[in-house]
């Protein structure tokens, strides 16, 4: 919501405000997943497993629009825009650099909102498969979504045959972002 908080706020208050912003974003990803055709036909256990490993990656795609690569600024939920230099001083350097790089690459592809939504669906079903019980069903779902994304993009931009493969190359980028940053520690104290 806001990169800096006043010294008068307790760690509990900071935690609560973080949670209040972050929890709805995660729930929106859950609702989004449930709207993917075929997702709810997977077993509930497999739906949960895919969401657990893919939600951070979907959020990274959603947060891309908050990163302005040209101005090197990030817009927070409080509506304020902060320069990278200010944020770097707060100690979030490596995640910010990785996010700027990723949002620049994804932004350069100029996807339409429906293409972006289909891409996020592919991201979610391409998540780490450890713990998935019906691998075949997940693969079928993924193949259908990739086919739909490819046909949408190729139909709209028949002259740009490189766009779809470029987009698929963003999947390993997201996997790396997830592996490097989702294990960041959140610590809070309760009396």
């Amino acid at each position: 919501a806001c990169p800096v908080s006043g010294a008068e706020r307790s760690s509990q208050e900071i935690w609560e405000s973080f949670s209040q912003c972050f929890t709805p974003a995660v729930k929106e990803v859950v609702e989004f997943a449930k709207g993917i055709p075929g997702f709810q036909e997977l077993s509930q256990q497999d739906q949960v497993m895919l969401l657990k490993s893919g939600t951070f990656q979907v959020l990274m795609v959603r947060f891309c629009t908050l990163f302005n690569a040209e101005d090197r600024t990030v817009t927070f939920l409080n509506g304020k825009t902060y320069p990278l230099s200010t944020l770097r001083a707060l100690g979030m350097g490596s995640l910010l650099d990785a996010m700027f790089e990723f949002s620049e690459k994804l932004g350069s592809l100029g996807l339409e909102p429906d293409e972006m939504a289909l891409f996020m669906a592919v991201v979610l079903v391409s998540a780490d498969r450890s713990g998935i019980s019906d691998m075949w069903a997940v693969e079928q779902l993924q193949e259908g979504l990739i086919r739909a994304l490819r046909s949408l993009i190729n139909r709209r931009r028949p002259d740009d045959s490189a766009l779809f493969p470029k987009l698929l190359l963003r999947l390993p980028d997201l996997r790396t972002l997830n592996n490097l940053h989702s294990e960041k520690l959140l610590a809070f104290r309760i009396d």
């Binding site: 995660v26 739906q47 951070f56 989702s182 294990e183 960041k184 104290r189 009396d191």
Partner: peptide, 25 residues
């Protein structure tokens, strides 16, 4: 007396998802 709890962002996401599914069952 203060208890110090530590979790990762991934743990937090996981917790929200588990709660969401448990509520809708």
């Amino acid at each position: 007396h203060k208890t110090h709890r530590v979790m990762t962002l991934a743990d937090h996401i996981s917790h929200i998802i588990t709660q969401d599914f448990a509520r809708n069952q």
